[in-house]
Lab assay of single mutants.
Amino acid sequence: SPEVQIAILTEQINNLNEHLRVHKKDHHSRRGLLKMVGKRRRLLAYLRNKDVARYREIVEKLG
Rank of each mutant, 00 (worst) to 15 (best):
N49L: 13
G63M: 14
V52F: 14
V4K: 11
T10Q: 03
R30L: 13
E60L: 10
R42E: 12
I13C: 04
Q5N: 04
D51K: 02
E11Q: 12
E60N: 09
Q12N: 07
N14P: 01
G38K: 14
V37F: 06
L16A: 04
A7E: 09
G32K: 15
H19W: 15
Q5K: 07
R21P: 01
L47Q: 00
A7I: 14
H27N: 10
N15H: 13
L33T: 01
H28L: 10
Y46K: 08
L33A: 01
Q5F: 06
H28R: 12
V37D: 02
E18R: 08
Y46F: 09
V4G: 08
R21G: 03
T10Y: 03
R56T: 10
M36K: 06
K25Y: 13
R41Q: 09
Y46D: 14
L9M: 04
S1I: 06
H23G: 04
N15Q: 13
N14K: 12
K50D: 05
R30S: 04
K61Q: 12
I58A: 04
K61G: 10
H28Q: 12
K61P: 02
G38D: 14
S1P: 09
K50L: 15
K24H: 07
R21E: 05
L43M: 05
R42G: 05
V59Y: 04
P2G: 03
V52G: 09
A45S: 07
G63W: 15
N49G: 08
V52M: 12
V22C: 13
A53R: 10
I8Y: 14
A53Y: 08
V59A: 04
Q5P: 02
V52L: 14
K39E: 15
N14E: 07
L44H: 00
N49S: 11
K25I: 06
E18T: 06
L20T: 02
Q5Y: 14
L33H: 03
I13Q: 01
K25D: 15
L20A: 02
V52D: 07
H23K: 05
N17Q: 14
G63P: 06
E60Q: 08
A7N: 06
Y46Q: 12
R48S: 04
R54Y: 04
V22P: 03
H19K: 07
I13G: 01
N17K: 15
A53S: 10
L47C: 02
L44A: 01
N49Q: 12
Y55Q: 01
N17W: 14
E57A: 13
K24L: 09
L9S: 01
K61R: 08
G38N: 14
K35C: 10
A7C: 15
L34T: 05
N49Y: 09
L16Q: 02
G63E: 11
I13L: 02
A45H: 10
R54G: 05
R31C: 11
R40G: 02
K24T: 12
Q12F: 08
K24S: 11
D51A: 03
I6Q: 01
M36E: 02
M36T: 03
R54I: 08
N17H: 13
Q5M: 11
L47Y: 01
Q5L: 13
G38M: 15
K24C: 12
R41P: 00
N49E: 13
Y46V: 11
L16Y: 05
I13A: 00
H19L: 07
I8Q: 10
T10W: 04
L62K: 02
P2S: 05
L20D: 01
K39P: 00
R31D: 09
N15L: 13
Q12H: 12
Q5E: 09
H28K: 14
R41G: 09
R30P: 02
R40S: 02
V22T: 14
N14F: 07
V52K: 10
E11G: 05
H19Y: 14
L34P: 01
I58Y: 04
R41F: 09
R30Y: 13
N49A: 13
A53I: 11
D51V: 02
I13S: 00
Q12L: 12
M36G: 02
I58N: 01
L34Y: 11
V59E: 02
L16R: 03
N15M: 12
V4N: 12
L43I: 06
N49C: 13
R56D: 09
R54N: 03
D26E: 04
N49V: 13
R56N: 13
L16N: 01
H23D: 05
L34M: 11
M36W: 02
A53Q: 13
A7D: 05
K25H: 14
V59R: 03
P2F: 14
E57N: 07
K61I: 11
K25P: 04
R21C: 07
L62S: 02
S1C: 14
K24F: 08
R54W: 04
L43R: 00
K35A: 14
L20I: 09
R40T: 02
A45C: 13
R30K: 08
Y55H: 03
D26S: 04
E3Y: 06
L16W: 04
L47S: 00
R54M: 10
H23L: 03
L33G: 00
A53L: 08
H27S: 06
I13E: 00
K50C: 12
M36S: 04
P2A: 14
H27K: 11
G63C: 15
R48N: 02
T10L: 05
D26W: 03
V52Q: 11
L44T: 00
Y46H: 11
L62W: 05
V22F: 11
R41K: 09
N17S: 14
R42Y: 08
N17L: 15
N15D: 08
R40Y: 05
L43E: 00
E60C: 09
L20P: 01
V22R: 09
P2M: 14
H28F: 07
I8K: 11
Q12V: 07
D51N: 07
V59I: 14
Q5D: 07
K25S: 13
G38H: 13
H19V: 05
R31Y: 09
R21A: 09
R21L: 07
Q5W: 10
N49P: 01
R31I: 11
I13H: 01
G32F: 14
N14S: 05
K24I: 09
R31L: 13
H27Q: 11
R42S: 07
D26N: 04
K50W: 09
K61E: 07
A53G: 09
R21S: 08
N15A: 14
Q5A: 07
I6E: 01
L43N: 00
S29E: 04
L62D: 04
Q12W: 12
S29I: 14
N17R: 15
D51L: 03
L43A: 02
M36Q: 02
E11P: 01
K61T: 11
R31E: 11
T10A: 02
E11H: 08
I58K: 00
L43Y: 02
L34W: 13
D26G: 04
R54L: 15
R54C: 07
N17Y: 15
A45K: 10
G32L: 15
V22A: 10
D51E: 04
